[in-house]
Each structure stands twice: as structure tokens, then as C-alpha cells.
Design a protein around this nucleic acid. Structure first.
Lengths: 341, 341
DNA sequence: TCGCGTGATGTTTACGCAAACATGACGCAC
DNA sequence: GTGCGTCATGTTTGCGTAAACATCACGCGA
């Protein structure tokens, strides 16, 4: 900076004023300085800037994996919106979801140059007694039900699951089977909970759950088990990838979809419309989740206020070809088309 | 820090020594200081640290999207390996791949607190005349053929494509059709190039390409066109998602896979094994790509040397159920099992 | 003509930390 | 007992920037 000042024949303070865009600099001086900057390839040192200003203009994102569509989409949206506000994103992946690992990541985050943190993580890991966020650092949590202690942003998974199960019941299915995600997952728990609630409300017996781990392979195995049950005509699968596996299992078992069995997924990943048959599923708006995260975090940063509570982003049922009225039941009036061969 | 020093009854320098883990501190003093840190909730200020040390211990990653499996996996691996070396990852997504946007991102990166940059991006965008990386900042490029100017890490896509096409020829197919990725993509171009080269070598005529955009939908449309060609018995699709669409198109057109048509994909995304039928495809080792990126970048950072050149990570053909000898041709000796009905 | 306001620019200082160097206590060899 | 090396710790300094304050030139009204 001193070099630039010398070359431009001004003081370093004027250089600073130009580089931060402050007013009160003569247009001619300004051009002179910009010129000198170009010539010397000057780029402001962000460490010094951060030290002086006391802020980093950076948001930390801590998560387990980018491998799920939801996480990577959310992160992408977070990064895009943060960039728009002049914030950068620092990514802290935690490889294995053990408590120690999470703690480690937070320690690092604590030392990291961030003004706020977005946690994309199941809440029970935050519950671990001595896992404390660096005090004074604004936090927003995704995929958690810690709404009483932190600001939480999430898609309305319960409502999505409700829509899915109701859709199947309205088609005339007597009851709906369910393939869950992994036990530790709160998303999975919430979807299962809503599934059970709708069946209860409708006075239908809830069959036992099949348990998966979000992967297509686990869906396939669950699907094989369900394919053996003659009275299983409708399955709500907790995500699209497992639904892919279920579709294959049903196909191999000779049960047609949707003629014999209807299947609904969750997520609406880009491929879901190309499954065989195209999958009826529940769309999650991850872009909106990311946007709300950034918005909530920046509010905390700028206003120095924290307001715990949960923001729910709506979900939408996307009807495609994998659901139809059951073959043996007269479809109720105004039902979906049955494309039985 | 001064407060901690006062509370512990030592100088601030001793606090610094403890917090950086430097030797030469009496165990008793050390404990005293750690105690004081705990009590006061002291966390070192990374901006000041970076300013003093002249390094940020941060790597910038610039990319277009996290939505592709390859990119998110690569980023995840980069983050994991970087963390192991004590580096954080700063993510700079560029929403739209126009030249201006890219420039903008680099400007931001230039001002950003990074010691090096990993570019996950097609090379022709780097070629743009006045797109210059901040001088003096180490760079590694992925998904590009700029090996003459930058260190490049990539999977051996040409070899993967070769394996795929040879596999189909060895099964006895007369020739192999091809569904490409988008025109601007160098990955796509390299795969198409290798496809053509193998056919040339084998003295087979290369049929006209179908063009897709990586999405399952585009694969479906291409598949419908190919399904109409009676002599099309083998298709090499440039990625798994498009292959999913091709499978659906063939299915709808009544052409069985693999009995009537063999299909090979590229990527080996986690779902590929659950397609109907499970997809023969080419596996890319993105984790290894990420590892090599970090390794190469840290070498540059630490040794202050740049060695342009391309590191190729091997690809592997994963044979599954979507390929078989053509029905009308006597399979050559030692071929794969044909499960024709 | 003088004083004072205004706007452009310069000077000083501190942000928090960690190298570099300084100090001081102790022990051991001669 | 003197000298010197070793180890633990303290003191000084400066990293690059920007806020706060200081200065200076100029113009305009009384």
C-alpha cells in the first residue's frame, strides 16, 4: 500500500480511501491511485483488513457430507446468496458423525475466520452435553429440531410426508407401507412420524416400517421384502434414491408399478422424473432453505439479536406415473388415471 | 490475550507460545495458561494470526456448481484432505459460466484470504484472454486440458471411454453409438474423442452422435431417437444420468436391455447399480482427484515451485447387467453371459 | 482584509499476534 | 569461584489496514 501511495504521490490513507470506495477523494487523485494499483498489482490484504475491521465477511458451514443432493444444493444456495452479500463460505466437513469429530470441527471453526456459522446437521449431535458453539458467534441450524434454542431453517418435511401419504389414501389404498431412512436421522423420524399420524387420523392400521439408510441398495432390499406381501399396494419411501431401489425390487418380483403397487418418494432429485416409471415424489426447495439460512444469519450478525424458532420452507407433492388407484379397489370419484396394461 | 496473560501471571508471549504449541514452556506454566484461557473463553484471532504469519491456511475452490456428483465429491475430498493438513476451504461458486462472472469470482478470490486456488472448471473459460489468476497465487486446475500452463488433475476420461467402447466391441457389437454431454464440456469432448478413436482403430464406422446436456431428460430424448434405429445394439452414454434416461427410452420403445441393446454409462454414481438393469459404467475416483489437488497445491505453496503438467487418476470399468453380446451375433469366445429370454 | 467553513488530503495510532531478540536463573566444567 | 551454555520467560517490534484526528488550501461573506 505504501508503494502505491508513493507511486501515486499521495498518502497511504488516500489509497485506503480509494480501495474501500470512501467518498471525499478528488476524481483525478482517484484515477491516479487506481492507476498505481494496477501498475503494482496491488491487492488489499484481507487479513489486515479483517483485523482492523473486526469482521471477516465469511460464513462457516459445518456438515457431514456433500454427497446428499439436499446438502450440496443447500450449500450451493448458501454460497450464492452469501456471495451476493459480499460474504465468502468456509466449508468444514466432518467425516464421521461421532461426537468427538463434531467437537473438533467446532474448535476449528472457533479459531476460524468466520462471522457466523450454519450447521447442517442432525440435532442430537448438537445435544451432546459439552458440544458448545463458540459463544457469541451467530448460528443457524438446518435439519434439526432445536428450534427452541437456535434459529432453525428446514423444509416442512412433516407436511411433505403428510401430502404423500394422503395422496396414496385418496387414491383408494387401504393403508400405506413405509421405508424409513436411518434411525439417527431426524428427517427420517419426522417423515415416519407424519406417515403414522396420517394413518392414525384416517383410522388405518400402520404396517411395520422397513428401515433403510437413504441408499438405493437399502431401498432395494426393503423393496424385496415388501414385494412379498400381497396386500402391500402403496409404499411411501423416505427418499428418492431408496425409491429407485424399491422400484427395481418390485420390478424383479414381477409387481408392476403403479398397477400393482404405488410408490411415492421424497426429495424430487433431478433424476426422479426419469425413473421407470417416473416417480411421484415430494419436492424440497433447498435453494430457499439456503437463502433463508443466509438471511437469518446476516440478520443476527448485523442486528446482534438471536431469535430461536423454526422457519419451515413448504414442500410440494409432484404427482408422476408411479402412483395410481389399487387394482382391486374401485377408484373414488376424481382419482388419478390408472394406466393399467 | 493480554487478559489471559495477566490472569495466568505470565507475559502475552508465553500465552502465544502455549496457544501455538511451541516448546520451551514449563508444564506447570502451560497448565496455568490453558486454565486462564478456558476461564476467559479466549480464542485466538485468526485475522491477526494470518496477518502476522503471512498465510491464511485456507484454500479457495472456484466452481460452477455443486450439483454434479463429480464436483461435490471432489470438493468433499478436497475439504477433507485440506482439513487434515490444517487448511480450511473457501468456496466460490460462479452461478453462470459467462466470462464476466468468472472474472468477478477471481477478483473476489484475489482479495480473499487464500494461500492457493483450486479451479474446477472447463479450460476454455480460463482461456479467455484477460482472465488472469492473481499473480503469485498457486493454482491447480481440475476438468481442463490446460496441462501446459497449470498443474492439472483429472480422471483419465479418455482411458475410461476407451474401456467402455472396447468392452462393447469385445462383446461382439458391430459398432457403438454415443450420447455426448454438452458441447462446451471438455470432459464430454474427451470421451467422444476416445470413443471415435477406438472405433477407428477397430475399423468400425462411427455412427453420428446424439447430443445431451448431462441430464436424464436429455438422455431420454436421445434414447428415443436411438431406439428407432434397428441396427443400434450398443450405446456408450457420456454419463450415468443420461444413461438412466436412455434406459427408460429403450424400455418404453420395447427394446430390452441388455438383450436387444447394451448400454454403458460413465461416472458410476451411487445409484447406477440400482438402475433397471444395473448399469455397466466407468468409475471415476473423485476422492483421489481431490486428494491429488490438495497435495499438488500444498507442494506449490510450501516449495514455491510450479510444475505444469497433468496428473491422471485411473478410471475403472464396472461391468454390470446392462451389457451383453448382441442377440444376432455369435458371441466371441470368453464373452459375458447373455441372459436373453 | 480578515475569519471561518468546507472539502481534500496527511499523520498518528491501534487492531491481535508471534517472530526476534533480550533477560535472567541455574548448573556444570575447569 | 569463574565462565559459559541452556532453558524458561519477558520485551520490543512490525505485519497492512482504516478510524480518528490533524492539517492545509481555497472561497466567500462581513
Amino acid at each position: 500500500m505504501a508503494d502505491v501511495a508513493r507511486l501515486a504521490g499521495v498518502s497511504s490513507q488516500t489509497v485506503s480511501r480509494v480501495s474501500t470506495g470512501h467518498p471525499g477523494v478528488l476524481e483525478s487523485t482517484r484515477r491516479e491511485v487506481l492507476n498505481a494499483m494496477q501498475q503494482l498489482g496491488y491487492r488489499p490484504n484481507s487479513a489486515a483488513r479483517a483485523l482492523k475491521r473486526g469482521e471477516f465477511r465469511t460464513i462457516g458451514v459445518i456438515l457431514f457430507t456433500l454427497a446428499t443432493t439436499g446438502n450440496s444444493r443447500t450449500v450451493e444456495a448458501i454460497a450464492a446468496h452469501a456471495a451476493r452479500e459480499g460474504y465468502a463460505i468456509t466449508l468444514i466437513p466432518v467425516a464421521v458423525p461421532t461426537q468427538d469429530e463434531v467437537l473438533g470441527a467446532f474448535t476449528r471453526l472457533g479459531e476460524l475466520a468466520v462471522d457466523g456459522i450454519i450447521v447442517i446437521m442432525e440435532v442430537h449431535l448438537l445435544d451432546a452435553a459439552d458440544l458448545r458453539l463458540p459463544p457469541g458467534v451467530p448460528v443457524v441450524v438446518v435439519d434439526s429440531d432445536a428450534g427452541d434454542r437456535y434459529p432453525v431453517v428446514d423444509t416442512d418435511q412433516a407436511d411433505g410426508a403428510r401430502q404423500a401419504v394422503r395422496h396414496l389414501l385418496e387414491l383408494g389404498h387401504r393403508t400405506v407401507w413405509h421405508v424409513t431412512g436411518p434411525d439417527e436421522s431426524f428427517s427420517s423420524a419426522r417423515r415416519a412420524q407424519a406417515w403414522r399420524a396420517v394413518l392414525d387420523e384416517a383410522g388405518r392400521a400402520a404396517p411395520p416400517c422397513e428401515h433403510g439408510d437413504w441408499s438405493a441398495g437399502s431401498g432395494y432390499r426393503a423393496g424385496l421384502r415388501l414385494a412379498g406381501l400381497a396386500d402391500c399396494t402403496a409404499i411411501f419411501v423416505a427418499n428418492d434414491q431408496m425409491a429407485l431401489g424399491v422400484l427395481r425390487a418390485l420390478h424383479e418380483a414381477g409387481r408392476r408399478v403403479p398397477e400393482d403397487v404405488s410408490v411415492v418418494g421424497f426429495d424430487d432429485i433431478p433424476d426422479a422424473g426419469s425413473y421407470m416409471p417416473p416417480l411421484t415424489t415430494v419436492r424440497q426447495d433447498w435453494a430457499e432453505v439456503g437463502r433463508r439460512c443466509v438471511q437469518g444469519l446476516l440478520e443476527q450478525i448485523n442486528r446482534h439479536t438471536v431469535e430461536p424458532g423454526t422457519v419451515l420452507v413448504p414442500t410440494t407433492l409432484i404427482p408422476r406415473a408411479s402412483t395410481a388407484p389399487p387394482a382391486s379397489t374401485a377408484p373414488p370419484a376424481g382419482s388419478a388415471p390408472g394406466t393399467s396394461s
